[in-house]
């Protein structure tokens, strides 16, 4: 109790009581945040309740019509379901790979710097650049993938042009780009673990497999939760590669929510409907945000 009051008074000493200066310093940033984050978030909501003005007719209030229309919109449902599969396909695999990579690089290894660089390099590339590279790999006639498949005796396949493999193809690309990024968080976590833990386990004769599942993995849990939140947000935010590789096709097989919003707003110019779908996207991200707060809360308790 005494400690808390002392800390509180110290915190007060650290602060300057000057409302005007405080606001003046914050104002420039507040202005930009207001115009490009808070205003559009609110405006998107109102936009979603009004029809688009067309041919001289003013916008009129249509209530929840846009939201009702979504339920009957096969492409929207497709985009949402695809987005869930996209998340389920990318997140567990890239997290598992990230852990494997971190474990492999977190020890003496000839050429370690080179190996680590190879894992991490895709992170530095633009999603568009990554998409171009994989477009070539998947190319039906001259692509590397079909060349390998043929040499192994299989039949070549139009990977991005067929509905059954298009989404999978995009998922693989995302995993390639993300795994190395997540690896660095695991690497940092592994390096902060006390080395005598492993020594003690080895002395007791615990197998390394056993040690990983009983000690390392649980200790990595906060990192995993953190990485997971990041990965979920990415799964709903990254659509650059869709635009370059498949344009959502064929037959909406690889369309994702944000990509469909982009198409609706800037190809069909149905901004009111696009606004309603943006609200759905914001709601999903909001749920993730709440999840993150709860997780971070637990994390501090854990410490």
């Amino acid at each position: 109790m005494a400690r808390r009051t002392r800390r509180a008074s110290r915190a007060n000493d650290d602060e300057i009581d000057s409302p005007l200066t405080g606001w003046a310093l914050f104002l420039p940033a507040a202005l930009f945040l207001g115009v490009f984050t808070y205003y559009p978030a609110v405006a998107t909501f109102f936009q979603s309740l009004f029809s688009d003005p067309k041919g001289g007719r003013a916008a009129r209030f249509i209530g929840l019509d846009n939201y009702r229309a979504m339920l009957d919109d096969a492409t929207f449902v497709h985009a949402l379901v695809n987005n869930l599969w996209f998340a389920l396909g990318t997140i567990p695999v890239s997290i598992a790979l990230a852990i494997v990579m971190a474990l492999l690089v977190n020890r003496a290894l000839p050429g370690r710097a080179l190996v680590r660089m190879s894992y991490f390099a895709p992170t530095v590339l633009a999603m568009v650049a990554v998409a171009n590279i994989w477009l070539l790999i998947y190319a039906p006639q001259i692509g590397l993938l079909n060349a390998v498949v043929e040499r192994l005796g299989g039949t070549p396949h139009n990977w991005l042009g067929q509905p059954d493999t298009a989404l999978g193809g995009v998922i693989v690309v995302t995993i390639w780009k993300e795994a190395g990024f997540f690896m660095i968080f695991y690497l940092a976590a592994l390096q902060s673990m006390p080395p005598n833990l492993a020594e003690a386990a080895a002395l007791e004769g615990a197998s390394r497999w056993h040690y990983f599942w009983k000690v390392t993995f649980p200790l990595l849990m906060p990192t995993t939760l953190f990485v997971m939140v990041n990965a979920v947000v990415n799964a709903f935010r990254m659509v650059d590669h869709i635009l370059v590789m498949t344009k959502g096709g064929p037959d909406d097989a690889s369309t994702l929510l944000l990509y469909y919003i982009y198409e609706t707003a800037f190809r069909y110019w149905d901004t009111s409907y696009a606004a309603a779908m943006s609200m759905v996207l914001l709601a999903i991200l909001g749920v993730v945000a709440i999840g993150q707060f709860l997780i971070l809360d637990r994390r501090t308790h854990y410490r």
Partner: peptide, 13 residues
């Protein structure tokens, strides 16, 4: 959480 990336419609306007 609400990054500019998802507010493309209104920011364009």
């Amino acid at each position: 959480m609400i990054m500019p990336d998802v507010l493309i419609v209104e920011n364009y306007r």
